[in-house]
Structures are given as C-alpha cells and as structure tokens.
Amino acid sequence: MLGNHAGFILASYGLSALVIVVLFVWVAVDGRAQRRQLADLEARGIRRRSDRRAEGGPE
C-alpha cells in the first residue's frame, strides 16, 4: 500500500511520533514534578506574599 519507498514513509512518521511523544513525556513529567514541589512547599506552610495578604497579613 505504501509503494516501494515504504521505509522512508514509515521512518518519517515514526521519527515524528517519537519526537512528539518525547516532548509530551517531558512536559508531563516536568509538570508533575512542579506540582509535587509546590504541594511540598505548601505542606511546610510556606505561602506566597499574595496568599498571605489575602488571608489578612502574616500571622
């Protein structure tokens, strides 16, 4: 179905899929790491200045 240059077609689609999957995994893993660190910091009671102001200043 892909003719006698099937290798090149499959290689280009395969390579594109690979790069896009790597990009996706990288973004997803990075996002998970950031959310974990943020949760960790919040669990230790560290607030951003804007959050503290919203709660009526630092205790």
Partner: peptide, 10 residues
C-alpha cells in the same frame, strides 16, 4: 508516488 505521504507531515 506514495512518498508524497511525507508531505502531509513535512
């Protein structure tokens, strides 16, 4: 021929 399929991603 069929190599034109690469165009659809290139």
């Amino acid at each position: 021929g069929e190599t034109v399929k690469i165009m659809y991603i290139h």
